[in-house]
Simulated scan of single mutants.
Amino acid sequence: MHRALIYISQIASLILKEMLALVKDPANRALLFMPAITQALLFGYGATYDLTFAPYAVLDQSRSAASTEILARLDGTGVFIRTATLTSSSQIAEQIDTGKALLVVSIPDDFEARLATGMQAPLQLILDGRNSSTAGLASAYVGAVLAAYNKTHGASPTVNVETRAWFNPNLESRWNMMPALIAALSMMQTLMLAALSVAREREQGTFDQLLVTPLTPSQILIGKALPSMFVGIIQSTLIFLIIRFWFQIPMSGSVWLLYLGLAIFTLASVGIGLSVSAVSLTMQQAMLYTFMLIMPLMLLSGLLTPVGNMPKILQIITYINPLRFGVDLVRRVYLEGATFSDVVFNFLPLLSVAAVTLPLAAWLFRNRLS
Results as ranks from 00 to 15, higher is better:
residue 2 H to V: 13
residue 9 S to E: 11
residue 11 I to C: 06
residue 18 E to I: 01
residue 22 L to F: 12
residue 43 F to K: 01
residue 45 Y to C: 00
residue 46 G to T: 13
residue 48 T to E: 12
residue 64 S to W: 08
residue 74 L to A: 04
residue 74 L to V: 03
residue 81 I to E: 13
residue 87 T to Y: 09
residue 91 Q to L: 09
residue 99 G to N: 03
residue 99 G to K: 02
residue 106 S to W: 08
residue 110 D to W: 09
residue 112 E to L: 03
residue 117 T to Y: 10
residue 120 Q to K: 14
residue 122 P to F: 02
residue 122 P to K: 03
residue 126 I to C: 00
residue 129 G to A: 12
residue 131 N to M: 14
residue 131 N to Y: 14
residue 134 T to H: 10
residue 138 A to K: 04
residue 140 A to E: 14
residue 141 Y to M: 12
residue 143 G to D: 11
residue 145 V to S: 05
residue 145 V to K: 06
residue 146 L to E: 09
residue 146 L to I: 15
residue 149 Y to K: 00
residue 151 K to T: 15
residue 153 H to W: 04
residue 157 P to G: 01
residue 159 V to G: 07
residue 168 N to F: 07
residue 171 L to A: 04
residue 171 L to I: 01
residue 181 L to N: 07
residue 185 L to T: 04
residue 187 M to W: 12
residue 188 M to L: 15
residue 189 Q to G: 10
residue 200 R to Q: 13
residue 208 D to T: 11
residue 218 S to R: 11
residue 221 L to R: 09
residue 224 K to R: 12
residue 224 K to L: 08
residue 226 L to N: 05
residue 227 P to Q: 04
residue 227 P to V: 02
residue 228 S to D: 05
residue 233 I to W: 11
residue 235 Q to N: 13
residue 235 Q to D: 14
residue 240 F to C: 04
residue 244 R to N: 12
residue 247 F to Q: 11
residue 247 F to A: 10
residue 250 P to C: 09
residue 253 G to H: 07
residue 257 L to V: 09
residue 266 T to V: 11
residue 268 A to W: 08
residue 271 G to V: 13
residue 273 G to P: 08
residue 276 V to A: 10
residue 278 A to S: 13
residue 279 V to I: 15
residue 280 S to K: 02
residue 284 Q to W: 06
residue 285 Q to V: 00
residue 285 Q to P: 01
residue 289 Y to Q: 08
residue 290 T to I: 05
residue 291 F to L: 12
residue 296 P to F: 01
residue 299 L to Q: 04
residue 301 S to K: 02
residue 312 K to E: 11
residue 314 L to W: 11
residue 322 P to S: 03
residue 325 F to Y: 15
residue 329 L to M: 15
residue 330 V to H: 02
residue 331 R to K: 15
residue 332 R to M: 12
residue 332 R to F: 00
residue 334 Y to G: 06
residue 334 Y to W: 03
residue 338 A to V: 00
residue 339 T to H: 13
residue 342 D to I: 00
residue 344 V to S: 14
residue 346 N to T: 14
residue 346 N to G: 05
residue 350 L to I: 13
residue 351 L to M: 12
residue 352 S to P: 01
residue 352 S to N: 01
residue 353 V to W: 07
residue 354 A to C: 00
residue 365 F to V: 10
residue 366 R to P: 04
